[in-house]
Design a protein around this nucleic acid. Structure first.
Length: 480
RNA sequence: CGGGAAGUAGCGCAGCUUGGUUAGCGCGCAGCGUUCGGGACGCUGAGGUCGCGGGUUCGAAUCCCGCCUUCCCGACCA
């Protein structure tokens, strides 16, 4: 037992940030790369990303989008064509000035996002209203030079998906923005089980170059917010900058209305921090590389029967579509295996030895509740399926209740700053930049979004008493 | 870029103040054996340009100078 201290993780309550870093390492999700701010996604972490990708990709395709790939290098001049866009991104750009052994005549930026190149290409491809809508998506890496990197949350290079679409009318484009937001909501709620808040960003928090930005804001176990995905209505800002125009049925030339939307590997950080506990990671079943891990327990060298049963169970479970792993490493004790798979967040564990088997039973352990349940061998697949289903439902419920119980509506300045210590705060706000900055100065909190589901009000700003332009209270929180 | 700390084995550290033999310890790793129902144990062993460069000295992980890197705290961000 002396070893437990060395092997344990720093408790969340003691140092949430240390807890996070240790989890990422111990669960073998990722590691730091040799260049500051870069991340190596290890196989276990990458598998989570692949599962997330396939869930999202199928929804993107089901709504009529097509995947494509655009170049990593973008002429620096492209970025400059949209004034707000370049202003927003220039501090974090990586710029290539030399290549092929000599200085380049025009520097290239490594894409921080692809509105510009895609806009340029779209302008070549779109001639007529018949070419619209054009609905593209790409899976890619992007680079944003970060001052304070943290694995998955802020790294210099990260992976994401970026959707880019062009439409004939504002109405179509606005619908598209909501379509994207809706499949993100589905991913966040039903796959990642995060129960985020959906809403619109305030002007100060908008994407550089967008007219409207919408987001999903999830609550981490420390009460801080994390943006899980965003969807932007770009109006004609980029089509004017890149001349994305079409000839209408009536024969005149019109600018397209464009959108863009993205979800990144940051979502893995959200999953870690929304669900994890002091024992380690807790993974939503749909994203768990292994949904159940089998730990056979055997004494002495005569263990062939137990080992064969483990293999048999694994085959049966896999045949039922359950991602299963058998941990038959002989040099580790069962206790060590239990702890290490719990650290890695595997939802269910099937353990058994002579004692259970002689009665025709196995033990199922639940990572979330720590409950152990005896299951008849011939009911194993059914029990695991049900167990995973219940696990998912419980995990979602836990995330939702945590968010709700740490969200407070406040009507005064005093209450506002008090409540900001514990989670999301809903309050009336005037929306003035200066006023937002004051809040940030005092509490480190920022406006997260204007939630869709908030009731219309006509209250006065809790800071300065001025009228709210949003006609709704907005959510403030400290954020990642 | 401003403020603080640290670089010695894969990881965590000691040694440095007061220079002096083959640079230690814990974990991990390898081999063998005993174990196995909540982080097992014994024995044996492998593994080091002491961040880099220069200087002082008979001799530098240790003293001096310069540089580099990383981490933590502040301004940006999916």
């Amino acid at each position: 037992m002396a070893r437990a201290d060395e092997l344990a993780i720093t408790p969340q309550s003691q140092d949430f940030s240390a807890w996070y870093n240790e989890i990422v390492q111990k669960a073998e999700l990722a590691d730091r790369g040799p260049v500051r701010g870069t991340m190596v996604i290890r196989p276990y972490g990458y598998r989570i990303w692949e599962l997330l990708q396939s869930e999202l990709d199928s929804r993107i395709k089901a709504t009529g989008h097509q995947n494509a790939y655009f170049p990593l290098f973008i002429p620096e001049e492209y970025l400059k064509r949209e004034a707000e866009h370049v202003e927003g991104f220039s501090p974090e750009l990586a710029v290539v000035t030399h290549a092929g052994g000599k200085q380049l005549e025009e520097p290239l930026v490594v894409r921080p996002t692809s509105e510009t190149v895609i806009g340029e290409m779209m302008s070549n491809w779109i001639d007529s209203y018949r070419d619209l809508p054009l609905k593209l998506n790409q899976w890619a890496n992007v680079v944003r030079w970060e001052m304070r990197p943290r694995l998955f949350l802020r790294t210099t290079e990260f992976l994401w998906q970026e959707g880019h679409t062009a439409h004939a009318s504002e109405k179509d484009a606005r619908e598209e923005v909501m379509t994207a937001l809706d499949f993100y909501r589905e991913i966040a709620d039903e796959v990642a089980l995060l129960s985020p808040v959906m809403g619109e960003k305030t002007p100060g928090e908008r994407f550089a170059g967008a007219l409207n930005t919408y987001s999903l804001e999830a609550m981490m176990r420390d009460g801080k917010a994390l943006q899980a995905a965003t969807s932007h209505y770009l109006g004609t800002n980029f089509s004017k900058a890149f001349n994305i125009s079409y000839q209408s049925k009536e024969g005149d030339l019109r600018y397209c209305y464009t959108t863009s939307w993205g979800m990144s590997t940051r979502l893995i950080g959200a999953i870690i921090m929304s669900h994890g506990d002091d024992r380690g990671l807790i993974l939503p079943p749909k994203l768990a590389p292994y949904q159940v891990v089998i730990v056979p327990i055997h004494k002495g060298p005569d263990n062939t029967q137990i080992k064969q049963l483990a293999e048999q169970f694994s085959l049966d479970l896999e045949a039922s579509g359950i991602r299963t792993h058998v941990d038959d490493r002989e040099y580790l004790s069962p206790g060590f295996k239990f702890n290490s798979w719990e650290q890695k967040g595997v939802p269910l564990r099937c353990e058994f030895g002579e004692r259970d088997i002689s009665k025709g039973l196995v033990t199922l352990h639940n990572r979330l509740t720590s409950e152990k349940q005896l299951v008849a061998i011939d009911q194993l697949s059914r029990a695991v399926k049900e167990g995973l289903h219940r696990f998912g439902a419980d995990l979602y419920k836990r995330a939702r209740e945590f968010r709700l119980s740490n969200t407070k509506y406040v009507a005064s300045k005093e209450e506002f700053f008090e409540a900001l210590q514990h989670g999301f705060v809903i309050a009336e706000h005037c929306g003035n930049k200066k006023c937002e900055d004051d809040i940030k100065e005092i509490s480190a909190a920022t406006p997260r979004c204007i939630p869709f589901d908030a009731e219309e009000t006509n209250g006065k700003c809790i800071m300065c008493g001025e009228e709210s332009p949003y006609k709704k209270p907005i959510i403030f929180a400290k954020a990642y």
